[in-house]
């Protein structure tokens, strides 16, 4: 009992120490610090976006069609007279949540498939990896579009499609790590004391490879936001009247020579969010996975 308590205390101290180190390294990097502040603002908009919008983001007004930038409409209005600022603020929630959900989906499936393949090897490994090869045999956005074609249009389906497309990324990382960690002494020791396979995978091996997965997931959120915006841009994602950055960009294309501001602001929103996640990902990589710092 005492040994277990001591081990727990030691683990807690170790985690606190590691967390402090990570925060220190992230904060030390200026770009990561700025991106962290930007992301906090984005999270604030995600939570309180509905209260911040000056107008109803879906309310159409025939008298306000294609208004230019003014005090009343900071970013102008669109072809239905809807306030673009309000729509961008309302769409923040959708885009950020879509990025996170996509990553959670591919993360969960990637871990299970990668761990199973790496731990059991043999036929099951070949089967899973050939399936991953099949998923990788099409460029990701084309695969996502093909899946959307099978599932139909819609925001939830776009999340599912992007999630499926990104599964191999996580599965490969987990499989590789498990293959190399499997021979370690601590895994052999767990086996000797009769631990179950699931315990060895999830409690012994995964905590040791989680850092590279967290880094990949942070960078994956920005990829997923970009892909979701691309699908929205092509008219396959969120359907009207819901506000979504990619969809707003896609619709503004028809008027881009006359009203370029309508295409400009949704793009800026996507760019800033993706850039913030990318810089945070870089900072986290420096902190968690120093070996890959050079890339």
């Amino acid at each position: 009992m005492k040994i277990e308590e001591n081990t727990n205390n030691y683990a807690k101290i170790n985690v606190n120490f590691k967390l402090k180190e990570i925060v220190k390294t992230v904060v030390k990097n200026k770009m990561s610090l700025i991106s962290l502040v930007v992301l906090m603002i984005i999270v604030f908009i995600v939570i309180f976006g509905n209260f911040l919008t000056p107008y109803n983001p879906t309310e159409q007004s025939r008298t306000q069609i294609h208004q230019k930038i003014s005090i009343n409409h900071w970013f102008g209005t669109d072809e239905h007279g809807r306030d673009i600022l309000s729509r961008i603020l309302a769409a923040t929630k959708l885009s950020v949540i879509s990025g996170i959900l996509c990553v959670l989906f591919s993360f969960a499936f990637g871990i299970v498939l990668g761990a199973t393949a790496g731990y059991y090897e043999g036929k099951i490994d070949s089967l899973i990896m050939r399936f991953m090869d099949i998923l990788l045999s099409l460029p990701s956005i084309l695969l996502a579009i093909t899946i959307m074609c099978i599932l139909g249009r819609g925001f939830e389906k776009a999340i599912l499609a992007i999630g499926i497309v990104n599964i191999p990324d996580y599965a490969m990382i987990v499989r590789g790590s498990i293959l190399s960690e499997k021979q370690s002494d601590y895994v052999q020791a767990s086996r000797v004391i009769g631990a179950k396979d699931s315990y060895i995978i999830f409690k012994s091996i995964l905590p040791n490879v989680i850092s590279s997965l967290i880094v990949r997931a942070t960078l994956g959120i920005s990829d997923a936001i970009l892909s979701a915006a691309a699908i929205g841009f092509l008219g396959l994602g969120a359907q009207p009247p819901v506000a979504e950055w990619g969809d707003m960009l896609g619709r503004s294309r028809s008027y881009m020579f006359i009203y370029p501001h309508e295409a400009f602001f949704p793009g800026v929103a996507i760019f800033i969010t993706v850039l913030a996640f990318n810089f945070l990902g870089d900072g986290l990589r420096d902190a968690l996975d120093p070996k890959s710092r050079e890339i």
């Binding site: 770009m31 920005s222 970009l226 915006a229 691309a230 841009f233 960009l249 294309r253 881009m256 020579f257 370029p260 295409a263 400009f264 949704p266 793009g267 996507i270 760019f271 993706v274 850039l275 990318n278 810089f279 870089d282």
Partner: peptide, 25 residues
């Protein structure tokens, strides 16, 4: 490296629209 981070974060389709607007429009 700063510009490469920006290049990786710019949505391609948005950048394309801006190019069209600037050079063609």
């Amino acid at each position: 490296m700063f510009f490469s981070s920006i290049g990786m974060s710019l949505p391609t389709f948005w950048f394309a629209i801006l190019l069209v607007d600037f050079f063609a429009g």
